[in-house]
Amino acid sequence: MGAWSAEPFGNDTAADWAYELEGQTDWNVVRDALRVAADTEGSQLDSDAATVAIAAAEVVARGLGRVPGRAFSDAVTAFVARASAPSAELVSLADAAVVHATSDDGELAELWEDDPDWHAENERLRAALTTV
């Protein structure tokens, strides 16, 4: 994974996945990415699937209006403008996916273990998803 930032879309894998949102008007692509992570124990989740799940959760948080548009994600901004607000069920799925994707015993966490920015970004994302 080529990464230039600890932000959810600051890497090649997430940036490539974002193009799947082009032309979409519903949350199915996002839901599918989240389910992969939410349905897999963190220790069994490969780093690419975990990266995509974090990016998908970021899309949900943006859909809620809780995270401003950021660099590297024009496709996400356009998708959020087209799609309806995410359901409470999707928000819950996003939070579960982030928990699994960032699991301490997971492959992705091992790659980022010494980067406090990555941990801070994931805490920010979880806070955006769990704010009432």
Rank of each mutant, 00 (worst) to 15 (best):
G2E: 15
R124H: 09
S73K: 04
D32S: 08
V67S: 04
R66E: 04
F72N: 01
D32H: 01
T25E: 15
S87W: 05
T13H: 00
A14G: 00
S103L: 05
W17V: 12
R124T: 10
S43K: 13
T77K: 09
A96S: 14
S92P: 01
V30T: 11
A38E: 06
L21F: 11
A57W: 06
T40F: 10
T40H: 05
V99F: 06
A61W: 05
R126S: 09
T131C: 09
R82W: 08
R126A: 10
E89F: 04
S47Q: 13
A49I: 06
P8C: 13
P68Y: 11
S5M: 09
L93D: 07
T51N: 15
R66K: 07
E110N: 15
A75T: 07
V59C: 11
T131V: 15
A75M: 06
T130R: 14
R70P: 05
A56P: 05
D95K: 15
A127P: 03
G69C: 13
A71Q: 11
D104G: 12
P116S: 10
Q24E: 15
Q24I: 04
D26K: 09
E107A: 06
H119S: 05
N28Y: 14
V36L: 04
M1D: 03
H100K: 10
L90E: 03
A94G: 06
A55F: 04
A128G: 02
S47L: 14
P68I: 13
E107F: 08
A120F: 05
D46V: 04
A94Y: 03
A78F: 08
I54P: 02
V98P: 01
G106H: 06
A55N: 06
R31G: 05
A61V: 02
L45R: 00
G10P: 09
Q44K: 13
D39T: 03
G106Y: 10
L108G: 09
S92H: 08
A15W: 14
A33K: 11
P116R: 13
W112Q: 02
Y19C: 01
L90Q: 07
V60T: 01
V59R: 11
N122H: 14
L45A: 04
H100Q: 12
A38M: 03
R31A: 07
A6H: 03
A56I: 08
D117A: 14
A18T: 05
H100N: 07
G65T: 09
Y19A: 09
A61Y: 01
F79H: 01
